[in-house]
Design a protein around this nucleic acid. Structure first.
Length: 204
DNA sequence: CCATTAATTTCAT
DNA sequence: ATGAAATTAATGG
């Protein structure tokens, strides 16, 4: 199945509607939980994580986005504040378009509205899949759920050649597992042949 | 090199 | 089986 990458709007179009490129340093927040949604954000360069912290201070990562992907756009359509944080994982360049300009843009370019529907639907679909796998007590089931989710972003489907470009700690925080459990389970999965481990790399 | 960050192992529960 | 702490490996300057 081909995954619609959210959202990748043409940069020049964004700029023509008043968007600005902004540089974020590693670990710099783009927005925080509770902030008002004021912009449409699209990554030009770098990576951004969406996260929360539970009552023990343990991090849960909802997603990690890369080049040409947007985030937080759902909150533009609601009057809610962000329920999550967005933090730059490396030095990144992010294009941001003020909310009003964003709506002006999609009203003048209705096809963007359709694309937005498709992309938000895609997100809901995979959120449901993730919730299913996260509901499992079995660590391997959780990891498989995440790996399938990540691989779905990948166009070509190749056997054991999709590189999971996350650290084990990040994988742990995406699945609610401890890093040791991730390491142990990945090794078990390699023995069973469902993944390949090369150096530190995970190939699925 | 040294400092930082990530991966793995050890050890107790 | 799991997680905190210690150890080892890699990465970056």
């Amino acid at each position: 199945m081909k995954t619609i990458s959210c959202m990748n709007i043409d940069e020049n179009l964004l700029y023509s509607f008043g968007a600005e490129g902004r540089d974020y340093k590693k670990r710099e927040p783009v927005f925080k939980e509770g902030d008002h949604a004021l912009y449409y954000f699209q990554i030009n360069e770098g990576r951004v994580k969406l996260n929360n912290y539970n009552e023990d201070g343990k991090e849960f990562i909802h997603n990690i986005l890369g080049k040409k992907q947007s985030f937080g756009e759902a909150m533009l359509f609601l009057s809610h504040n962000y329920p999550i944080n967005a933090v730059s994982l490396e030095d990144s360049r992010i294009i941001r378009l003020p909310k009003n300009n964003f709506f002006e843009m999609i009203s003048q370019h209705p096809h963007l509205s359709l694309e937005m529907n498709a992309c938000l639907s895609q997100e809901i679909y995979y959120k449901l899949k993730m919730v299913q796998s996260l509901a499992s007590q079995n660590p391997m089931q959780r990891l498989i759920g995440l790996l399938d989710y990540l691989k779905s972003y990948h166009d070509e489907d190749c056997h054991h050649c999709f590189h999971i470009a996350f650290t084990r700690q990040q994988i742990a925080n995406l699945t609610g597992l401890r890093v040791e459990t991730v390491i142990r389970t990945l090794k078990k999965m390699e023995k069973e042949g469902s993944i390949t481990l090369q150096d530190q790399k995970i190939l699925y």
